[in-house]
């Protein structure tokens, strides 16, 4: 059973995804292999001399091994904020969905407000300075959590609405307290939507440029996105090093996608139907 229409559609989507995802990646790769003169031409061509290793060494050593520190910082930031977002977001969503009332209506409003109201930099810095969290990793993690929590709660809430209440009641009848009910009964059922949240928020936090720039200044506090600016300025750009840096930064999300490929697809489709 070969359906011509399906074959055509399939081929087109393969070509389109090739152009959109693979071509830019190949461009990054070949530019990262070139020397500075050739890379500055920004042409999509095979390098005449492959100097990928030299570029890698230069990028890693730049500014006193800043990239290594940046990777440590970015990993800490991403892992901590996403972990808090998942656990806290699921807890909040569970309570909001299961116990409607006057207070939850206010909370709902605040969650929506978090999506709509744009954050302002200077007042946020003042607030952080007052509580002594400015210029600390903890402060930045809390900021990332604050910016991501609204979306996360809405996602979890929509999903929890599809879990039958009977499940909670059965657990309660068997003598489970609220904490145990949440962690042992509800949390495992949320698996697919957790994967969605982890993917979406990890990418958002890992790629964030503006927040680390403003809320965690200083060279020793740089995250990987900030290191890109070492190789690109108004007058001179070292495209070979810039693209090598991009290549290195792309690897962690890429690995994550390769390892969690199946769960991600499953998570997003299930979220799509039930959410």
């Amino acid at each position: 059973m070969i359906r011509p229409k399906g074959v055509l559609l399939g081929s087109v989507s393969i070509v389109v995804s090739f152009v959109i995802f693979v071509v830019p990646f190949l461009f990054v790769l070949v530019t990262a292999m070139k020397d500075r003169n050739e890379a500055n031409l920004l042409q999509f061509s095979w390098p005449t001399r492959i100097v990928l290793w030299d570029n890698l060494v230069q990028v890693v050593q730049a500014r006193d091994y800043q990239l290594v520190i940046a990777f440590v910082n970015s990993t800490t930031l991403t892992v901590c904020s996403v972990a808090i977002l998942v656990i806290l977001g699921a807890m909040v969503a569970f309570v909001l969905q299961r116990r409607p009332g006057r207070w939850t209506r206010i909370a709902d409003f605040l969650v929506l407000a978090g999506l709509i109201v744009p954050p302002a930099v200077v007042p946020t810095i003042w607030a952080l300075q007052k509580i002594g969290l400015f210029r600390t990793m903890t402060g930045l993690i809390l900021i990332e959590v604050a910016f991501g929590i609204s979306f996360t709660v809405l996602l979890f809430k929509a999903f929890i609405a599809t879990i039958p209440r009977e499940l909670d009641e059965a657990a309660a009848l068997d003598g489970a307290g609220p904490i145990r009910m949440f962690f042992q009964v509800i949390f495992p059922v949320l698996r697919s939507v957790i994967v969605t949240v982890v993917v979406v928020q990890s990418v958002a936090v890992f790629n964030d440029f503006a927040n680390p720039l403003y809320f965690l200044p200083g060279d020793e506090n740089a995250t990987v996105q900030l290191t890109l600016f070492n190789f690109s300025s108004q007058f001179t750009s070292q495209y070979n090093l810039l693209f090598t840096d991009i290549l290195l930064i792309t690897i962690p999300p890429l690995l994550m996608f390769l390892f969690f490929n199946r769960q991600i697809v499953a998570g997003q489709t299930s979220g799509a139907i039930k959410g």
Binding site: V72, N73, T76, C80, A83, I84, T136, M137, T138, E220
Partner: peptide
Amino acid sequence: ALAVTAGTLALTACSAGSL
């Protein structure tokens, strides 16, 4: 569950890396 929470807290407590 406690370990997860504790781990999260421990991670949060660590400051920006410095070599």
